[in-house]
């Protein structure tokens, strides 16, 4: 292993592999400003409008689900309609271990990682075996079956009321301060995901994913190990989403499948994905904040109506903005060196 710093590049050699990392300080300003804004927002909320903190946490977590999901969508070339399954898996794993075994959050994080990876690997052959519609239907079905199971084995999962008494992540006495710290934690996780997935999307790995997404058969004929790429792009994002489930469990101190596994939650996540322009990593952040605040607004404005109104408003937005909010921005800043990643199936 050998690291070399060139004028504009970081060159890393591991064995016979060579990785290059563009360092272009002149392009750092904008990302730094955006990250700065995201960090300042919760601080402002803490001082001036603490009731906004939960919404900000929600926004970050939604984005943290949508970012790996877009990698999964790209790498498998299919829309997964059941990302919430992994939230359930990670969340229940963490909650059960915390309640029954008294394990602290860092340990349950490992459990959530293992459980997420296990289910990710277990279900990844779907991306190879099931094409388009079947894949979508099956992935849609899994969370609902899971939800059903939480009711059937209700003495384990407490499907009716949810699991209580999960150790909370932050406990510093002041409720709002705890929330601020939690919010920063959520933001950190989301930024980490964004960073990782963004790097992956600019790598040689992503070029094979884009090819798979366009034409699996031709990609294979050009030497891409399609099945391997699909399994990786299924299992790792699934694990990342399971970690968000872990976060939910330790953030609320309770975990109930009914909050995450039904279609309503899935709709929200997919909308984040679509508002952001499906496989745009930064777009997902925009989408996450947009949806979280839209939901807040609708609850404020309409009270009980919002579960009905929310999807309708989103549908209208989707029809009027097919490329997502972020697509509008991208259109004006068209730089076509890296693949434009579209999803076809």
């Amino acid at each position: 292993m050998e690291l070399e710093v060139k004028r504009e590049k970081l060159v890393l050699r591991i064995g016979t592999q060579k990785y290059e990392w563009q360092i272009e300080p002149r392009y750092w300003l904008n990302p730094l400003i955006y990250v700065g804004i995201l960090i300042v927002l919760p601080v402002l909320a803490y001082f001036f409008y603490p009731t906004l903190l939960p919404t900000l946490i929600d926004a970050n977590l939604l984005a943290a689900i949508a970012i790996p999901l877009s990698w999964m969508t790209l790498g498998t070339g299919r829309m997964n309609f059941g990302p919430q399954f992994y939230i359930g898996a990670g969340g229940y794993a963490a909650a059960l271990c915390s309640i029954h075994l008294g394990w602290p959050p860092p340990v349950t994080l490992l459990v959530a990682l293992v459980v997420g990876l296990f289910f990710g690997l277990l279900m990844s052959p779907l991306a190879i075996l099931a094409g388009g519609l079947y894949y979508t239907l099956l992935t849609l079905l899994f969370p609902l079956v899971f939800l059903e199971l939480t009711f059937i084995f209700t003495d384990v999962f407490r499907g009716d009321v949810g699991l209580f008494g999960v150790q909370t992540m932050v406990n510093v006495g002041s409720f709002t301060l705890s929330q601020l710290i939690t919010c920063m934690g959520a933001l950190l996780m989301m930024l980490l995901y964004m960073f990782i997935v963004d790097k992956i999307m600019r790598s040689r790995f992503a070029s094979s994913l884009a090819a798979i997404n366009d034409d699996e058969e031709v990609a294979a004929a050009m030497g891409v190990n399609v099945n391997k790429m699909k399994i990786i792009s299924f299992a790792i994002p699934a694990t990342m989403i399971a970690v968000v489930g872990w976060f939910y469990a330790h953030y609320y101190g309770t975990f109930a499948g009914i909050s995450y596994l039904p279609l309503a939650f899935m709709l929200k996540v997919l909308m984040v994905n679509m508002i952001g322009g499906r496989v745009q990593v930064y777009g997902n952040v925009v989408g996450g904040y947009f949806i979280a605040f839209l939901e807040l607004l609708l609850i404020k404005l309409t009270g009980d109506l919002s579960p009905v109104l929310f999807p309708i408003v989103l549908l209208i937005l989707l029809l009027t903005l097919p490329e997502g909010l972020f697509g509008l921005y991208r259109k004006r800043h068209y730089r076509e060196y890296l693949p434009t990643l579209h999803v076809r199936r």
Binding site: K18, R204, V224, R344
Partner: peptide, 25 residues
């Protein structure tokens, strides 16, 4: 590959057509 640029679609072949040594994107 309809949604890739001409360059990118050839890059895929270069990267995956054969196991190469010391070749970055």
């Amino acid at each position: 590959f309809p949604e890739l640029t001409a360059l990118m679609s050839v890059v895929v072949s270069v990267l995956y057509g054969k196991d190469r040594v010391n070749q970055s994107l």
